[in-house]
Simulated assay, not measured.
Amino acid sequence: MKEKVISIKGVSFQYPDQEAFALRNVSFDVYKGEWLAIVGHNGSGKSTLAKMLNGLHYPSEGTVSIGGYALIEENVWLIREKLGMVFQNPDNQFVGTTVQDDVAFGLENNGVEHSAMQERVFASLEKVGMTAFLNQEPHHLSGGQKQRVAIAGVIALRPDIVLLDEATSMLDPLGREEVINTVRELNENEGLTVISITHDLEEASRADRVIVLNEGMLYTEGTPERIFQLDRELLNLGLGVPFAVQMSQLLTDAGLQLSRRHFNEEELVKDLWTLNFEK
């Protein structure tokens, strides 16, 4: 039986200055070692949920449990030890003059001994492929490299869960691919539980499970395969279906026998190449 690391039950949230609820009766669980993507258009409740998981908001109704701790004021710092957060703009997270100083910052604040800190800094940068940049200034890195350093700073603290809050939205396609591949490797090789909050369905296609929010409510959930079958519904919700999914459908409708519906362009090209080679 899968181990629950987050449990959200009947959660609603209302900002003091607004009549409408930002979240309404939302319930779902997150399981150890999975990659869960939470998608929705602007105003769907994604950002509110992200802040709640980081202990910046508390439910107006319902309950939230993270890492075995109820989300209440007394447990916030215990929860933040369990869950690390990577934000949209990595420049807002940098405080060190070099990459290694920046990754070490959180460890210093937590009182980690110097020898252990050095090991953890190097190990975390190695996991994200950034050891060649130890002495570089973070602000001189590319967007994808900056986010990988930000991820290293989080995993150096050894959380059980990493939350990516629109962490690829400001990146170019190459940077986005760098970060997504890094997250997938950490998820698969380290058993890290990942929650990515995004409006990018191409990023969501890499996840194990997808939750769709709409107007503060849980609209639907399932595997990427199931979610992308709702292509017209997703468009009506203001979510763009990935190009590879659209092209796979068009090619299938035109009579081409693809092996399956593809969620990224690389897999689609490989399938087309194989079909052409066989002919």
Rank of each mutant, 00 (worst) to 15 (best):
F228A: 05
A70L: 11
L36R: 09
M1H: 05
L163V: 03
L107C: 07
T193P: 14
V241C: 07
P90G: 10
S169R: 02
F94C: 12
V39A: 05
A20S: 12
P242I: 09
G255Q: 04
G40C: 06
N75I: 01
T220M: 12
Y69F: 14
E278H: 13
F277Y: 14
A207L: 00
N135M: 06
Q136C: 07
I155S: 13
E203V: 10
L83I: 12
I161L: 14
V194W: 15
G96L: 13
K51D: 15
S169W: 10
D17M: 09
N135W: 06
G238Q: 07
L192V: 13
V86T: 00
V39G: 03
D102F: 10
I8M: 06
G255L: 05
A22P: 05
A132W: 05
L83C: 05
K4Q: 08
G33R: 04
E73D: 03
P173K: 01
V11E: 00
V183M: 15
E203H: 04
P138C: 08
G67I: 04
A132F: 02
H199L: 03
L141R: 13
Q93R: 11
V76G: 00
E34M: 11
F28A: 02
A123K: 15
G67V: 06
H139F: 15
N110P: 01
L23C: 04
L268A: 04
P159C: 02
S27Q: 01
S12L: 07
G144T: 07
S115I: 14
V86E: 08
V183I: 15
N187E: 11
E34K: 14
K270M: 07
K279N: 15
V128C: 06
N89D: 11
E215H: 14
E61V: 08
E177K: 15
E266T: 10
L78Q: 06
E215P: 02
P16Q: 12
H199A: 10
A150N: 07
G143W: 06
E233A: 03
I155N: 13
L23F: 02
T168F: 11
H262Y: 11
E225V: 09
R24M: 00
L125M: 05
K146M: 10
R206N: 12
V26C: 00
E278T: 09
T274D: 14
E178Q: 14
P173E: 14
V64N: 00
F87T: 08
L157E: 04
E177L: 14
F133G: 02
H57L: 14
M170P: 09
Y58F: 15
T48S: 04
V39K: 08
L171T: 09
N89T: 08
A254K: 15
G55R: 12
Q18A: 09
F133N: 01
